[in-house]
Computed example of a mutant assay.
Amino acid sequence: MGVAIRRAGEGDREAVTRLLDDAFQNDPVSSWVFPDADDRRRTHHLLMGAFLGIVLEEGYVDVTEDGSACALWLPTPAEAHEDDDEDGPAQLREAVDPGNERIEQIARLTAGIHPAGTAHEYLWMIGVAPERQGEGLGTALIQHVLDRCDREQLPAYLEASSARSRPLYERLGFTFMGSTLDLPDGPPMWPMWRDPAPRF
């Protein structure tokens, strides 16, 4: 596709947080976490910044060279580490918006459905600037990692946060795992899995 992609670092934190904030302002799940639009405009960037911080520490972030799209990935081992922090969701809520229980709730719910037993790449989030959506930037970012997954025979996993995004992931080889994660009084999320392309 001719999309230049690079690995983001600490120096990209502010720009990537802003990009994620813009990209997910009207996302169904973000709108559920922050149902009040004014509150979402004030606070949503703090959640995006917290997510980015986790991924910069434990995974990696790919960005397009022009900064218009990014993908947050977490390499996930076959078995959970014994020192995994059970209090992580509560700490996330405390750091972002202590009065908003849905921040903790979404973290616990997604962790509860995450597949275990097989090492895989977890696409936590992919964000594209609203004015650049539909240009194939997201596809290029994801395919960049899926090509490596195929070479290394690694599966990949994600939760689609909108019905509109699900067909994109299906075109890239992801399949719906059969049961949605239905947020309480909120929208569904679609857990999706991709096995690596077979070697010939």
Rank of each mutant, 00 (worst) to 15 (best):
M1W: 05
G2V: 01
A4F: 13
G11M: 06
D12K: 04
E14V: 09
V16N: 04
T17M: 12
T17A: 15
F24P: 01
Q25P: 03
D27T: 00
V29N: 04
S30Q: 07
V33E: 02
V33P: 00
V33A: 05
F34Y: 14
D39S: 14
D39Q: 12
R41D: 01
H44L: 14
L47R: 11
M48W: 04
L52R: 09
E57F: 00
V61P: 00
T64I: 08
T64K: 08
D66T: 10
D66S: 06
G67A: 10
L72G: 09
P77W: 09
A78Y: 11
H81L: 14
D83F: 12
E86K: 10
D87F: 15
P89C: 06
E94Q: 11
V96K: 04
D97G: 02
E101H: 13
E101G: 09
A107D: 08
T110H: 05
G112R: 02
G112K: 11
I113G: 14
H114G: 00
T118Q: 12
T118D: 03
Y122E: 09
L123K: 02
M125N: 10
V128Y: 08
A129W: 10
E131K: 02
Q133F: 03
Q133S: 03
G134M: 08
E135R: 13
E135G: 10
G138K: 03
L141Y: 05
Q143I: 03
V145L: 03
D147G: 07
D147E: 14
C149R: 13
C149E: 10
R151Q: 15
E152P: 11
E152Q: 15
E152H: 15
P155C: 03
L158R: 11
L158C: 01
L158S: 01
P167F: 01
G178H: 02
L181S: 10
P184W: 02
P184A: 07
P184F: 02
D185R: 07
P187Y: 07
P187Q: 06
W193V: 01
R194T: 04
P196R: 04
R199C: 09
F200C: 03
